[in-house]
Structures are given as C-alpha cells and as structure tokens.
Write a protein that binds this DNA or RNA. Structure first.
Length: 453
RNA sequence: GGCGAGUUGGCGGAGUGGUUACGCAGCGGAUUGCAAAUCCGUGUACAGGAGUUCGAUUCUCCUACUCGCCUCCA
C-alpha cells in the first residue's frame, strides 16, 4: 500500500541500541506482546506495556496500513499461580480464568487500547507446545527426566545473549532452582507432570502441563511464524522468561531467528519502588478507574514518560493530565491530518513525551483539527473516550452563569461576585468568551450550586 | 557478587557537540467592574571529577547516588 513506508526506530534489547526496524515482510508486520497470567485484576504496572504496544500498533497501522500489521497478545491461562488461587477460593479454574480474562479486557478497553489482532489462550495451544517440545527433544536441546521435560541450556550457545549474562554468572548467584533431575542447574522446565487434582493433558509427554515460557513460543510460532518483527514486555520479563522463550524458539527453528527486535519497557514505580505483587505495593487499574481517574487520563500520564525510563504514578500528574486533556478537548475538531512533527517523534523510538510536546504546540496555535488527528495516534482525544470531560448537569451551571450575566448587566456587583464565588466553589471554571463559557475544573461538583439561583 | 538503566531548572519531562524543548507552578504585563479564563513576556538547568575537542549537559573514563533484573512478577 505504501510505496516507501517511513522508518521506525526502536531500542532493541538484544543489541542494546536504538536501530532502524526493517520489517521482515512489509505487507505483514508482526508483533507479539506477552499478555497476562489470568488469576487476578491487572495492576497498574501491567498497563504500561499494553499502552506501549497499543501506541506501536497505532503507529504501524498508520504508516503501513491497518491490514498490514498483526498484533498478538496472549492470555496465559495455565500456571501454578492460577492453580493456587483456585485452590484457595474453591473456584473452578475455568471460571477463574474466564472471569479474570474478562476483567483484563474491560480494564484495557477503559484505557482506550485497541483490540489486538489475535488474543490466543495458552490452553488452546497445548498440542503446539507438545509438538515443539518433542522437536527439541529430538534435536537434543531438551531431555526427559523424572516425568519432566527440560530444556538443556548448555545446548544453545546463544543462551544469555538477550539478558546479557553468562550461565556461569547465574549459577554463581546460586538462586536457581536446584532439582536432582536437572543436568544443569540452569535448565528449565518445558513440561511437568500433574497430579490427579491438577489441570493436565494426556500427551505423548505423559499426563501433565506446560512449564512457563513454552506457551509464548508455541503461540507466537502458530500465529506469527517462526520469525517475526517485534516481541515485548516489561523489562522484568527479560530474564528468565524472554531469554528462555528465545532459547526454545531459536533451537526449535534454528534458521528463523525468532523475534528481530525485543522491546522492553521500564517499570512503573510507586514511591520510588517498583510496583509489584511481591512487594504488595500495587493497586489495580480498576482501583484507579474507580477512584474517578478516567482511562484517558491514565493513558496520558503513561505516555508522558518515555517507555525506557521508570515512571512514578502520582496524583499530581493525573491532575495535570486532566487539565491538559480538558483544554485540548475544548478545541479539538474533526477533519485534520496527523502533524509531521508528531509522527517524527513517534517514529523515533516511540517518543511519546516528545509527541505530546508537539501537541501542546499545535493546541497553542489553535489548530483543533490537526490536534485531534495527531492525538489519535496516541489514542488520545478519541470521541468514545471523552465522556468524562463533559460537564454533566449543564442546566444547573448554565442557570447560575445566566444569573451572573444578568447581575453584571445590572451592575449588581455584590450578587455577581457571590454567584462567581459559588461557581468557583463548585469547581466550575468560567471561560468567558470561549466555547460554551465554562468548563468543569478540579473538584467539579454541581450539587454545590443548588440554591444559588 | 554479576548484569543493566538512570542522575536535566521549584516540580514533571524531552533533546542536542556550539543557537528555544515542552507542560505545570512562579514572576511581570495586557485584558477585566474585581476576578477567572485567555493572550504576551520571563527562568543559560543539565550529579561530581578527569579526559577528548576550538568548544561538552550531549562523546570517553572514573567516583557517588538511585532504581531494576539475577526468585513469581509487566
């Protein structure tokens, strides 16, 4: 569709540098994002790479055409954490994963993320996993021991290249799981036996279930092929998850190379610490939404820090985002085209903060059409995301405004000032001469206007 | 201990070998009945040290500090 699509540059974890991305197939650019293990609500940090990949997806669709990008984001619905959670609550595993999958989709939709092209569930790809494991065993990259199938790390010279560590270093750390059946302490599980009361599949490998990592290798291969363009996730997945995925896939298809670019985002912080379940300092996306922070505001805050840097979530940032988005929404108009500088910023390693700076420039110039079309690349100012910015209860506000106009015309300054103070107290920002003449500001509460007129 | 990322003005946060980031807040002005909103103007900040260079916040090295991974984690 495009004669010469613009060049995208990305930071590739594999080479540790920002480089031009050359699509393997310009008519079908393929992305894979490690999706959630479904056993609970997604916490706010989980949203960061979803929003990052949504931005990437939007940009690629713009530059190459919507039909020329395939974006896969999986659900891992078989995992020991799921088994443990179900055992705690007594809930059926299928019900648990279905419920939390729905939660994830709802929460990510609230953040204005596009639906990926494909959203495979791991349990639908057991056969592909088994096939891959059998192949690895046949080629000597994996072995069976004590009912398990294990990947042999020493069989792959490239092991450690992604995360930048040698197996010697890792063993020196002495934090690897030791198991008597492992030939090498670093070897990891591809398949493990299940008890009667654990989920399992009867396969050529015996009754059991997959280990972590193999599901992504199998689903990526099934849906994108043995090689594809961009693979990503949080940088805490780089080791061991992505290192192991890469080892499996590269050994299963030695000539393919798996992912060309590895895109990792930095962590979300809370009070300077990584937000994580093990630290117990996390709150969910739903918590924030329920607190009254619109999804669009969350998205704006996330995009205002480059993905390669840690980001602190603060109420102050959210408040600033609210003000900016309200202002932008008041001037946004249809019929524009994306601004070149915004596109340039995004193509340069997804520099969303730089793009936002350009949006400020466009807004200041009063070009509402260009603003809206450009913001759409970042998933901002979309029509279906803006309900939060509507004032609501307009009649009450309009009545007070009208009364104030009358009072001012009568030069009844005392009454005019009283009405003005009432508006301010109710969080109404009077914008004489602009738009409808007022906006909902911080703490907007029309109930406080009762009795003023 | 190993590996990696980072340290920019009051706050947030880009970027660059020599010229303005940008936003918020602040300050000055215009406007206003007084305000608000709006508009105009305003801030030489780049952790410390050494080096390369005509010139470094921007490249190299060292130091300090912060954070992450090495164990489930996005």
């Amino acid at each position: 569709m495009t004669q010469s699509a613009p060049t995208l540059r990305l930071r590739n974890s594999l080479t540790r540098g920002v480089e031009d991305v050359t699509p393997l197939d310009p008519t079908n650019i393929r992305l894979y994002l490690c999706g959630p293990t479904v056993y609970d609500r997604a916490h706010l940090g989980n949203a960061r790479n979803v929003i990052l990949f949504d931005l990437l997806f939007r940009l690629l669709r713009h530059d190459h055409g919507a039909d020329h990008v395939t974006y896969v984001r999986n659900f891992t619905d078989v995992d020991d954490k799921i088994i443990a959670r179900a055992a705690e609550s007594g809930e059926d595993i299928a019900d648990l994963t279905a419920r939390t999958t729905k939660w994830f989709l709802d929460d990510m939709a609230a953040l204005g993320t596009l639906t990926p092209t494909r959203m495979p569930r791991a349990t639908d790809y057991i056969a592909q996993m088994v096939e891959m494991i059998e192949g690895l065993i046949a080629s000597g990259h994996a072995y069976r021991a004590d009912g398990h199938a294990l990947f042999s790390v020493s069989s792959y010279d490239g092991y450690g290249a992604l995360s930048g560590r040698s197996t010697d270093d890792m063993i020196a750390g002495a934090r690897v799981e030791v198991a008597p059946y492992k030939r090498d302490p670093m070897d990891f599980v591809l398949w493990k036996p299940s008890d009667e009361d654990e989920p399992g599949w009867e396969t050529s490998l015996g009754y059991g279930r997959p280990g972590w990592h193999i599901e992504c290798s199998a689903m990526a291969k099934a849906l994108l092929g043995p090689s594809f363009d961009i693979h990503g996730g949080g940088n805490d997945l780089m080791f061991p998850h992505h290192e192991n995925e890469r080892a499996q896939s590269c050994c299963a298809d030695p000539d393919a190379g798996f992912a060309s670019v590895w895109l990792h985002n930095e962590m979300l912080l809370v009070e300077g610490r990584k937000m994580s379940k093990s630290l117990g300092n996390f709150f969910t996306v739903r918590d924030v939404l329920d607190k009254g922070v619109p999804g669009e505001v969350i998205r704006f805050v996330f995009l205002s820090t480059h993905y390669s840097k840690p980001m602190d979530w603060t109420d102050r940032k959210a408040a600033e985002a609210v003000a900016t988005l309200r202002k932008w929404r008041s001037i946004a108009a249809d019929g524009g085209a994306p601004d070149q500088a915004v596109l340039d910023a995004l193509r340069d390693d997804l520099n969303a903060p730089g793009a936002i700076a350009e949006l400020h420039r466009i807004a200041k110039a009063g070009d509402g059409a260009t603003l809206k079309a450009s913001a759409a690349l970042l998933g901002l100012l979309e029509d279906d995301m803006g309900a939060w910015a509507d004032g609501g209860d307009e009649a009450v506000v309009e009545a007070v405004l009208a009364a104030r106009v009358t009072a001012r015309a009568d030069k009844d300054w005392a009454r005019a000032d009283a009405l003005r103070d009432g508006l301010v107290a109710a969080g109404v920002v009077v914008t004489d001469g602009k738009g409808r003449g007022w906006e909902a500001g911080p703490g907007f509460d029309p109930a406080k206007l009762e009795g003023l007129v």
